[in-house]
Simulated assay, not measured.
Amino acid sequence: MHTDEGRTLTRVVQTCSAHPSQWDAWTADGQYLYLRYRHGEGRVEWHPGPDDDAETPESWGEGRSGVLIEWNDGTGGGAISLEDFLAAAGLVLAEGVDEDSR
């Protein structure tokens, strides 16, 4: 995940707009990422694909998932814009990609 393709998102779907802010995202090289911001903490996880139960994803399995990026901005906040989240995480949207909502 250290390539430019691994840091460029080609699709982003917001799954929760506040408390926590979270998105499903896919990179240019096809990797699924779970983006979450809660209590001032941002986290980017990689998984084989989205799962309806993100807290206990049985289908992800050991060794098939991991944490790519974590940070704490010290605010304790629960909502963040996609633009601010991506800037803090070092991720970018591919040209012409818009955020989808569910």
Rank of each mutant, 00 (worst) to 15 (best):
R38D: 11
V44H: 02
A89D: 03
A94R: 09
S21I: 02
A28I: 01
D24P: 03
E55W: 10
G30Q: 12
T27F: 06
E45M: 15
A25K: 12
Y32V: 05
T10N: 06
S65Q: 15
D84G: 11
E45P: 00
E62Q: 11
S21G: 15
D29S: 11
N72V: 05
W60N: 04
G96P: 03
P48H: 01
Q14P: 01
G63M: 06
A25Q: 08
E83V: 12
D98G: 04
V44P: 06
G66K: 07
E45K: 06
W26E: 07
V67W: 00
V12H: 00
E58H: 07
P50K: 06
P20H: 10
G61A: 14
C16E: 08
L68E: 09
G61F: 02
I80C: 12
P50A: 13
S17D: 13
R38F: 06
Y34Q: 09
L35S: 08
Q22W: 05
G40Q: 06
T10C: 04
A25R: 05
T3H: 04
W71D: 14
T27L: 11
V13H: 01
R36D: 09
L86S: 04
G42K: 04
G6C: 01
R36P: 03
E99S: 00
G76N: 12
T15E: 07
G76Y: 10
E5F: 00
E41P: 00
L9W: 00
D53K: 09
D51L: 08
G61L: 13
R11M: 01
W26L: 04
Y37E: 07
L91C: 06
L68W: 07
W71R: 08
P50L: 05
T10V: 15
G74E: 11
D4C: 02
D51T: 03
R38M: 03
I69E: 04
H47N: 06
E5T: 12
E95A: 15
N72E: 15
L82W: 07
G30R: 13
R102N: 01
G66E: 06
A89I: 10
D29A: 11
A79C: 05
L68Y: 10
R11N: 02
W46P: 07
H19R: 15
H47K: 09
Y32E: 08
E58G: 08
P48G: 07
H19Y: 12
A18N: 04
G76I: 10
G30T: 12
E83Q: 12
P48V: 03
L86D: 01
G49D: 11
E70M: 13
I80L: 14
A89R: 13
S21T: 09
L91E: 08
Y32P: 01
G77N: 11
D100L: 13
D51H: 14
Y37D: 06
H19C: 15
G96C: 05
S17F: 01
A28F: 02
R102W: 03
G6M: 09
A89C: 12
